[in-house]
Simulated assay, not measured.
Amino acid sequence: MSKKIGVIVFPGSNCDHDAYHAMKHVMNADTTFLWHKDKEIGDLDLVIVPGGFSYGDYLRSGAIARFSPIMEAVQDYVKKGFPVLGICNGFQILLEAGLLPGAMLHNEKLRFVCKNVNIRVENNRSLFTSGMKEGTVLNVPVSHGEGNYFIDDEGLSDLKEHEQIAFRYCDANGNVTQEANFNGSVDSIAGIINKQGNVLGMMPHPERAMEPLLGSSDGIPFFESIFNSLQLA
């Protein structure tokens, strides 16, 4: 079955071409760009909200992008049960749009961090992770200054109750440690899904870990998991 992937482009997006390359040239998917002023998504199997600095991160990350016309289409797309993946700034936009719970704060040490980190698969009961074993460690890059995920105690309990925590920061052996949680995120959270299971937001960049030349190809099993769940492989 043909794979149809859409990558949204906002003013200030800088990871849109990374996502496009990963989908079209590595995963061999039929991939197209969606402009922030578009009002329809069309016949797509997956929408990716990529990283970058949408609208220059004015006010706060994702705060302006959430009002783009395309985001109304994304809301409708999600309500129909279709999957949306938000990466880095895309995660921030999904939070601002209310498609995922919580908020992003500046990194704990108030420094922009760009490096490879390890994340652990916390559950494999979503379409995004069903092809990976729980406890699997992925080595993927991060590149953010506001990746300190926050949610209050009640919200955290709700995430745990509904098994919405997809990834946690960990060391190379899969241990969740304070040192591995470099940005200070609550409960070392690196990615979450919505209760319906069709929206995932994550700060790390799996689309930048698709080829050994880049230092890791651990993004491939992640996207294979998505495609297999959607019967697109």
Rank of each mutant, 00 (worst) to 15 (best):
Q164E: 14
D57S: 03
G86A: 03
F53K: 05
C114H: 10
I151P: 07
D158F: 07
G201R: 00
N116W: 13
N194V: 12
V74F: 01
N148Q: 11
G147T: 12
F182R: 10
G147S: 10
R66L: 01
P212C: 00
G6N: 04
I48V: 14
F222A: 02
D218C: 09
T177R: 02
A103P: 00
Q75P: 00
L59I: 15
I189T: 09
M210E: 05
L95H: 02
H106F: 08
G131W: 10
I87F: 01
F67W: 13
L99I: 08
G90D: 06
D218W: 09
H106C: 04
S130L: 04
M104V: 13
H25L: 12
Y58I: 14
G81F: 03
M203F: 07
F150E: 14
L44G: 06
H144G: 08
A103C: 02
D153R: 12
G219L: 03
L100F: 05
G131N: 06
R111I: 15
N194F: 03
K160V: 15
R208L: 05
I87M: 00
A63I: 06
F112H: 14
P221D: 09
G102C: 10
T177K: 06
E122W: 02
G174F: 08
V9T: 12
V84T: 04
Q196E: 14
P50A: 04
V47Y: 01
L110W: 03
L213H: 14
Y58T: 11
K79D: 11
Y20K: 09
M1K: 08
N198T: 00
H205R: 04
I64C: 02
L214Q: 12
I151D: 04
C114S: 15
A172F: 07
F150C: 09
N173G: 15
E161R: 15
H36M: 01
L213D: 11
R120M: 13
G51Y: 09
W35Y: 15
F227Y: 14
L59A: 05
S188D: 11
A97N: 13
I5Y: 03
L200P: 01
A22H: 08
G90N: 06
E146W: 06
W35K: 12
V9S: 04
C88S: 07
L46G: 07
H36A: 03
C114Q: 14
S229K: 00
R66C: 08
E224Y: 10
K133I: 13
E211A: 00
E72D: 15
K195Y: 07
I193F: 01
F227S: 06
N28Y: 10
